[in-house]
Design a protein around this nucleic acid. Structure first.
Lengths: 169, 169
DNA sequence: GAAAGGTGCTTGCGAAATGCAATCGGACGA
DNA sequence: TCGTCCGATTGCATTTCGCAAGCACCTTTC
């Protein structure tokens, strides 16, 4: 799944060797924005319909490359995946991808609203969300917790678009 | 190569369906940072050793999705690829990926220097480089051309690291 | 004006990854 | 102890990757 030797020493290539496939960032997105930390949750609630073997492979790769950790639970137990600092720091990549996607590809309003919030509020908003993730996943308390939190603002914006859509449609 | 229907309406997914594979962003990187606009140039000078069929497929896909245009030259003639506005706007994604790669993956100093310059000078520097690309590829003159240009600064930084390296042995 | 070399690709083929459905062994609750 | 949930694994058909070779067309050279 992951090459032993990098194709080159370029930083962009180095990032792509870990993140550059059609599924890795999707899984990471669900952990970061969806707050999902269990296998079943990541599979069944995934928008794109990821297959279980693909998900299993990606989770293994993400743990290998140090973007996630997995608490050691034996087979059959509820295992939780946790973001590492390296995983949290993929957030600017997500924000940039989302901003590009909203502008240049077709998207649905409900799902695009998060990307728009991140793109318009960046970069302070991205930093705030990273701090939130550090608190949730790494147990590092925030210095200046803001209210409402970024994730709460995103959830509210998502609901607002949904209700507006359902009235219109 | 490209799906007809998106897997979902999510902006991040939409971006990944175009950019989320191991080669597309590598090709785009060589066009943006390497200034390469011809097939042979993109193939033979590529750091990662891209195969010609892979390159041909990616160039076709990039034209289809509107990130590049190709001047209509028949087979055997020198065809040039040109960035579109959508292609130019992948630069923030590149910068974010490069910044992550430098911090979290092994890289060589010569090739990482570009990513470091972009990460430290962002976001004004990224905007300047996008304006340079608009001038080179779209023929849109810059309002306030700075000297030295961003690409020139990058080239100089690359050379500086190289000579430092060769002295050190 | 024929030969040599450069242009952007295409083809063939073995290896690997993807995508889908079914299944599995352990833990847990009743 | 039975049924259900858990995180996966297995089998298999299809697609993509990655490498080497070749191809059609153009330009340059002598």
């Amino acid at each position: 799944m992951l090459r032993e030797k990098p194709r080159s020493g370029c930083a962009i290539n180095a990032a792509l060797e870990v993140l550059g496939d059609p599924w890795t960032l999707i899984v990471l997105r669900d952990v970061i924005f969806g707050g999902r930390r269990h296998f079943r949750d990541l599979q069944l609630r995934n928008e794109e319909g990821i297959a279980s073997n693909i998900l299993a492979g990606r989770l293994r790769k993400l743990v290998e490359t140090g973007l996630l950790t997995r608490d050691d639970a034996t087979r059959g137990q509820k295992a939780a995946y946790t973001l590492t600092e390296a995983g949290i720091q993929t957030l600017p990549v997500m924000a940039a991808l989302g901003a590009w996607g909203v502008q240049h590809r077709p998207t649905t309003p409900e799902l695009a609203v998060r990307a728009r919030i991140l793109a318009e509020g960046s970069p302070e908003l991205v930093d705030d969300l990273m701090d939130e993730l550090r608190e949730t996943h790494l147990g590092i308390a925030r210095e200046n917790p803001k209210s409402p939190s970024v994730s709460e603002r995103m959830r509210q914006a998502y609901e607002a678009v949904r209700s507006r859509e359902s009235q219109a449609g």
